[in-house]
């Protein structure tokens, strides 16, 4: 329990760090990014919006020093107020994120977990069957997949399977004409749109998990307790599962938690390629239209999601490792 408390404290600390980076970033960069943005929107920007922006970024109201602004910022955050989007003024950014997040969580979240399971499974296979040609060939393949840019792989998949072969829709999250939300045809359409992007995420993310699991399991299988388990006359399956994998999964889980941020970051680029209506596409939009409030809110939201996911991974870890559970590690 102490372990989880510790992890929760780390979560809060990291969240605070993300919030702080988020606050200071626009204030630290040289030049005047907000000015540039306002200039870019010159004429098309609602004067209210411009004023709100100036205040939000401390360009107006010089009576307030940075610390007061920082306090205001944190206070507003506690009320869930992240400001309003510029490019879709006056939509509050929280609302926009609320619309996009379910798509991302559904696609990227599910694909990431799936790729971890699949990659780890194949990692077990390559470790247990070392020496067989197929198992050994999987390793360089995994290294290659792990090195492929997600979005590029997505582009190629889109071209081949959607454009050339026409097996999948060309983009988007769901067809507009399929009927009310959660109707059967709507769900089928959502699934049809998710398969290709999901598959590209699974394939590209899988390589890393495969290598991690393979190396962990190979090390574990060399441990004395595995040799001793064999000596006891346990079946190979029992040795592999209860002694090998059961231990090798622990460092793999740690690696999973650590890499989540990177993988999620990469996966959102996949959304851009597929025009998937999730956070990645929204982030892309906000970057191209210099919509700073939206951009920052998305960053915060992704950070929060990663942190929560990480905490869940830590909790799972604690559940699986008695050394942590009994607080003696």
């Amino acid at each position: 329990m102490l372990y989880l408390l510790h992890k929760f404290a780390l979560l809060l600390l990291t969240l605070w760090a993300a919030l702080t980076i988020n606050f200071f970033l626009p204030r630290l960069v040289p030049g005047n990014p907000i000015g540039a943005m306002i200039a870019k929107y010159q004429g098309r920007l609602d004067p209210n919006a411009a004023k709100a922006l100036m205040i939000a970024y401390g360009l107006e109201g010089h009576d307030k020093n940075v610390l007061t602004q920082y306090g205001d910022y944190l206070f507003k955050l506690t009320k869930g107020d992240l400001g309003r989007s510029i490019s879709f003024f006056p939509a509050p950014v929280t609302e926009m994120i609320g619309g996009a997040a379910p798509w991302t969580i559904g696609l990227v979240g599910v694909s990431t977990v799936f790729s971890f399971l699949l990659g780890s499974g194949l990692g077990v296979y390559t470790a247990a069957r070392r020496g067989s040609r197929f198992a050994d060939a999987l390793v360089p393949l995994a290294l290659f997949l792990n090195s492929v840019p997600y979005f590029w792989f997505a582009l190629i998949a889109l071209y081949v399977f959607a454009f050339l072969l026409g097996w999948f829709p060309l983009g988007g999250g769901v067809d507009i004409v399929t009927g009310p939300n959660w109707s059967l045809s709507w769900i089928l359409s959502v699934v049809a749109h998710a398969i290709l992007p999901g598959a590209t995420i699974v394939l590209t993310a899988m390589g890393g998990w495969l290598i991690a699991m393979r190396n962990n399991l190979v090390s574990t299988l060399g441990e004395d307790y595995v040799a001793f388990a064999r000596a006891k006359g346990l079946s190979e399956t029992r040795v592999l599962y209860a002694y090998g994998i059961r231990n090798a999964i622990l460092p793999s889980l740690t690696a999973f938690g650590m890499a989540l941020g990177f993988v999620l970051g990469g996966s959102i680029l996949t959304e851009v390629v597929f025009g998937y209506p999730g956070l990645g596409t929204l982030l892309y939009h906000s970057v191209t239209s210099l919509d700073y409030p939206l951009m920052q809110a998305i960053f915060l939201f992704i950070s929060l999601a990663v942190l929560v996911a990480n905490f869940l991974v830590d909790a799972t870890y604690a559940l699986l490792d008695p050394r942590v559970r009994t607080g003696q590690a």
């Binding site: 941020g261 951009m295 920052q296 960053f299 950070s303 990663v306 942190l307 990480n310």
Partner: peptide
């Protein structure tokens, strides 16, 4: 370690 690197880089 846990901050999502790529989104941070993008922002």
């Amino acid at each position: 370690l846990v901050l999502p690197g790529l989104p941070l880089v993008i922002v």
